[in-house]
Amino acid sequence: MKVESALFGVIGSFFAMMCLIYGFWSYWDEPVGTVGFALGAALCFMISFFCWWTGRKTDLRPDDNPEGEIDEIEGDYGFFSPYSWWPLYLGGAAALMFIGLAVGWWLVILAVPLVALASVGWVFEYFRGDDAI
């Protein structure tokens, strides 16, 4: 967690510095960019603080050890459906829905049932048929 804490601290410091530079160059008349940089800095500092606070309370992870080996952090990442078509359907339906946000709301209305159907199909894929759990 030390690396993550330092990384977000550096990014937060960059955003804070850019907030001051942007505010100075815009004569503090354009508040949107200044507020955006300030909020970005605050968010990075909050994440940095959380990583530092959590890292104090937990043991060192294998990837925090400079002499650690790659096989020390291997493990099970979960089960992924090898022959599932549902992610493709969901991606297409979501793409149609997001195109509808740019083109027209009528396309969003047509895409919402497709997104719902693909989501339900993917979630309940292993509850019916030959692959039922």
Rank of each mutant, 00 (worst) to 15 (best):
M1V: 09
K2T: 13
K2D: 11
K2A: 14
V3W: 12
S5C: 05
S5Y: 10
A6C: 09
A6K: 15
L7K: 15
L7I: 12
L7W: 14
F8E: 05
G9F: 12
V10H: 05
V10G: 00
I11C: 09
G12Y: 04
S13T: 13
A16S: 04
M17K: 14
M18Q: 04
C19S: 09
C19Y: 05
L20R: 06
Y22T: 08
Y22M: 08
Y22N: 08
G23L: 04
G23P: 04
W25T: 13
W25H: 12
Y27A: 09
D29Y: 15
E30W: 11
P31Y: 12
G33Q: 03
T34N: 01
V35R: 05
V35M: 09
A38H: 02
A38S: 06
L39T: 06
L39D: 00
L39M: 10
G40D: 05
G40E: 01
A41Y: 02
L43A: 08
L43W: 03
F45T: 01
M46H: 01
M46V: 01
I47W: 06
F50P: 00
F50C: 03
F50Q: 06
C51E: 07
C51A: 13
C51Q: 10
W52P: 00
W52C: 04
W52F: 14
G55F: 03
R56P: 00
R56V: 02
T58K: 15
L60E: 05
P62N: 01
D63V: 06
D64Q: 11
D64N: 04
D64L: 05
N65R: 14
P66H: 04
E67D: 04
G68L: 06
E69T: 09
I70N: 01
I73H: 11
I73P: 00
E74L: 13
G75T: 02
D76T: 09
Y77R: 12
Y77C: 11
Y77E: 01
G78Y: 08
G78F: 10
F80N: 01
S81W: 11
S81Q: 09
P82C: 06
Y83Q: 12
S84D: 02
S84A: 08
W86T: 08
P87R: 03
L88P: 00
G91L: 15
G91Q: 14
A93I: 05
A93Y: 07
A95W: 11
A95P: 00
L96F: 10
L96N: 01
M97V: 08
I99Y: 11
L101G: 07
L101Q: 09
L101H: 09
A102P: 02
A102N: 08
V103I: 13
V103F: 10
G104C: 07
G104Y: 10
W105M: 12
W105P: 01
W106S: 10
W106C: 01
W106M: 10
W106G: 07
I109Y: 10
L110C: 07
L110Y: 08
A111L: 07
P113F: 07
P113Y: 08
L114M: 12
V115M: 06
V115G: 01
A116S: 10
L117G: 02
L117D: 05
A118W: 09
S119L: 13
S119C: 06
V120Y: 11
G121Q: 04
W122S: 07
W122V: 00
E125C: 00
Y126T: 02
Y126D: 00
G129C: 04
D130Q: 11
D131F: 14
A132T: 01
A132G: 00
I133M: 02
I133W: 06
